[in-house]
Amino acid sequence: MLEQQLNDDSPALLRFPQFESHLYEIAAGEVAGLTEEQLDFESDKWGWSGWSIRRQLSHMASGNFRWFWQRWGLTMYPEGPPANPPNAEEVKVLAQSKYDRRLDEGVYWDVKLILEELQRGLALGQTILSQHTVGSLRTEEFEYADTGEWPWFYNIHSTGLRRDSETPTKIWFNLETIFRHRYYEHITHLYNIQRIKQAQGLSTKTEVPIEGYMALPGWDLSTPD
């Protein structure tokens, strides 16, 4: 992800242009035309193939609702609420389901429905960006509880992330870090989707950049070749 030289008054949309359409389009392109069997292929041969393509996509969609709505709600939208925000009942199936950080599979199993929610969640992010500048991305912070499950997180987000001086389990993200995290999550799971396609002898549609979490030393970038 190239970080443009933008001043603090620049629109935040210029800092993360991928959220407008690119992330959705490359995800939709990779799953287009796949059969149900191909979408649901899983294997214990590789660590990255424990979740099927369908479940990788569902995780991507669910994460946007957790990070762009469920955790901090309207505080992320200083100029007013987004269009079509999830109501309380929707949050339960989009961001709080029993399916391990995925959409509720009893409601969102059809890949078309998953893609619709992926697009909807990315639109929340786009709305947040439209209401901020590059400067406010870096100054506005949001509290989060850190129980130590993400030790690698600090190796990537050297700026925009700080630990509370009085409560060790409390950390603060700025908005730039939140959007970096979501971008890195998207491309990481897109790369997994591509590897699962390759394991089935299927071709991929685009080149996913190896950056962010995937660029960390020791990250499993293996392929089925």
Rank of each mutant, 00 (worst) to 15 (best):
residue 148 G to D: 01
residue 165 S to K: 15
residue 177 T to K: 03
residue 152 W to D: 13
residue 89 E to H: 10
residue 97 S to F: 04
residue 142 F to Q: 12
residue 153 F to V: 08
residue 79 E to I: 00
residue 88 A to L: 13
residue 177 T to W: 00
residue 145 A to S: 12
residue 123 A to V: 01
residue 159 T to P: 05
residue 148 G to L: 02
residue 173 F to V: 01
residue 177 T to S: 09
residue 155 N to K: 12
residue 170 K to Y: 04
residue 138 R to F: 06
residue 170 K to Q: 15
residue 89 E to W: 00
residue 150 W to S: 08
residue 81 P to V: 10
residue 137 L to N: 05
residue 134 V to I: 07
residue 122 L to N: 08
residue 97 S to W: 10
residue 162 R to L: 11
residue 153 F to S: 07
residue 105 E to C: 09
residue 84 N to C: 04
residue 118 L to V: 03
residue 145 A to H: 06
residue 90 E to G: 00
residue 173 F to L: 00
residue 105 E to I: 08
residue 171 I to W: 00
residue 122 L to D: 01
residue 170 K to N: 13
residue 138 R to C: 10
residue 112 K to Y: 04
residue 136 S to Q: 07
residue 174 N to R: 07
residue 146 D to L: 06
residue 86 P to G: 09
residue 146 D to V: 13
residue 116 E to Q: 14
residue 109 W to G: 14
residue 87 N to D: 15
residue 114 I to G: 03
residue 149 E to S: 14
residue 163 R to K: 15
residue 98 K to F: 10
residue 153 F to P: 01
residue 165 S to T: 12
residue 118 L to D: 02
residue 177 T to C: 05
residue 151 P to N: 06
residue 77 Y to S: 09
residue 131 Q to Y: 12
residue 89 E to I: 03
residue 170 K to F: 01
residue 85 P to N: 14
residue 151 P to D: 04
residue 146 D to R: 15
residue 99 Y to L: 02
residue 106 G to C: 06
residue 102 R to C: 14
residue 125 G to Q: 11
residue 126 Q to G: 09
residue 109 W to Y: 11
residue 120 R to V: 12
residue 88 A to G: 02
residue 87 N to L: 01
residue 176 E to P: 00
residue 148 G to T: 06
residue 149 E to W: 08
residue 128 I to H: 04
residue 139 T to A: 07
residue 104 D to C: 08
